[in-house]
Simulated scan of single mutants.
Amino acid sequence: MESRNTVRLLAELAECVAEASPEQRGALWRLSEPARQLDANLIRLPAGADVGEHQENDLDVMLLVVAGSGALLDVERELPLGVGSLVWLPSGTRRGLRAGPDGLVYLTVHRRRPGLAVQGIREAEPMEEAGEAACWLHLICPGCGAVPDGASPAYCSRCGERLPTD
């Protein structure tokens, strides 16, 4: 068994891109090492697709374009992106992405969000009025587990995965 401190090759990103369909949208690869301090995702947006404007309040994100082209959209400008473009997205900034005619494949890297901790279980208290609790499961991205920003988004603002419609 390899220890946490063992250096190893995680992925050949060019192969991940080459093996995926040009129409595929969402995560082509994810960092999944246990006990890691970082998260990383290789995301594909097909030609003309976009990730709507959103704001990440908690994390700085590094974005590296590995295939295709597109544009980073922020409140001030549209920044053209091509293979090798490396962008720092500071926490608190509003941004979106749009893929060019050949699509856009990019790697994002950021500090790992802490996992949800299970608190002590307590006995349920009886309720005077019964009713169904609100279910948020349909709002959670099946690709990365994020709760999307905005009203009724079609795609996850973190990983680009198509969101459930119900």
Rank of each mutant, 00 (worst) to 15 (best):
L104Y: 03
W88T: 07
R30I: 08
R122Q: 14
H138M: 14
E2T: 11
D149N: 10
A117N: 10
Q55S: 09
L64Y: 06
P90E: 08
V61Y: 05
S85E: 03
A130H: 12
L81G: 00
S32A: 10
S32E: 04
L137M: 00
T93A: 06
A47F: 07
S21M: 12
L79F: 05
S157E: 02
L31S: 07
S69E: 04
E123W: 11
S69P: 11
S21T: 13
L42P: 01
L72F: 11
R94K: 03
S152H: 15
L45C: 08
E76V: 10
P114A: 06
S32W: 13
L59Q: 15
G103S: 02
V118T: 01
T93R: 14
L89C: 02
S152Q: 13
L107N: 10
C135F: 15
M62V: 13
E2L: 10
G82R: 10
P153Y: 08
L107M: 11
P114R: 09
E123C: 10
R44V: 00
L139Q: 02
L79G: 06
V109T: 13
P90N: 01
G82E: 05
R95T: 02
V75M: 07
E15I: 15
D58V: 00
P101T: 03
G96W: 02
R44D: 00
E128K: 13
R162I: 15
T93E: 02
L64T: 09
A14E: 15
G84P: 11
A124V: 08
E129G: 11
P46C: 05
L59N: 04
C141N: 00
A130N: 04
E129V: 13
P114T: 10
R30N: 05
G131P: 00
E23N: 11
E33Q: 05
E129K: 15
R111F: 05
N5V: 14
R158A: 07
A14N: 15
E128D: 11
A18G: 12
V105F: 01
N5A: 04
A71T: 04
P148W: 02
V17F: 08
E53V: 09
L73T: 11
A134S: 02
P90H: 05
A11M: 14
G100L: 01
G26D: 03
E2P: 13
A117M: 12
Q24Y: 13
L31P: 12
D50Q: 08
C135A: 11
G48K: 00
M127Y: 06
A146D: 01
S152E: 10
G100Y: 08
D58A: 04
E23V: 13
P22D: 12
V87R: 11
A99K: 08
E161H: 15
Q24W: 14
G160Y: 14
D39T: 02
P90V: 12
P101Y: 09
S32G: 13
P90R: 15
A71E: 06
G96H: 01
P22H: 07
V87K: 03
W29G: 09
G160V: 10
V61Q: 10
H110A: 11
P101C: 01
L89V: 07
L10G: 09
P142N: 00
C16N: 09
R112P: 09
R77M: 03
C144R: 06
A20Q: 12
R77E: 04
W29P: 08
R25D: 06
W88C: 04
D60M: 00
L86I: 06
A67G: 05
G143P: 05
R4C: 06
L9E: 14
V65L: 11
